[in-house]
Simulated assay, not measured.
Amino acid sequence: MAEEKLTYEAARDELLQVVAKLESGTLSLAESMEVWQRGEKLADLCQGFLDGAREQVSAARKESAQEE
Rank of each mutant, 00 (worst) to 15 (best):
A2D: 11
L22R: 10
A59F: 09
Q66G: 00
A2G: 04
Y8G: 00
E67Y: 12
L42V: 11
A65G: 07
S64N: 13
K41A: 03
R54H: 07
A20N: 12
E55V: 00
A20H: 10
A59L: 10
A2K: 12
Y8W: 09
Q17G: 06
D13T: 10
A20V: 12
A65H: 13
R38V: 07
S24I: 07
V19R: 15
K41I: 00
E63F: 13
E31R: 12
S64L: 11
L22I: 15
A11R: 10
S24C: 11
Q47P: 08
S24M: 10
R38M: 08
R38T: 08
L42R: 03
L16Q: 14
A43P: 01
S32F: 09
G39W: 06
V35H: 01
A20G: 02
S64V: 06
E4M: 00
L29Y: 12
S28Y: 01
E63P: 03
A20C: 09
A10Q: 12
D51E: 11
E40A: 14
E4D: 05
A65S: 13
A11M: 09
A20D: 14
Y8H: 13
Y8T: 01
E14N: 05
T26V: 04
W36M: 10
A59R: 04
A2C: 02
A59Y: 07
G25Y: 02
D51M: 01
E4S: 09
Y8V: 01
R54N: 09
E14I: 07
L22H: 02
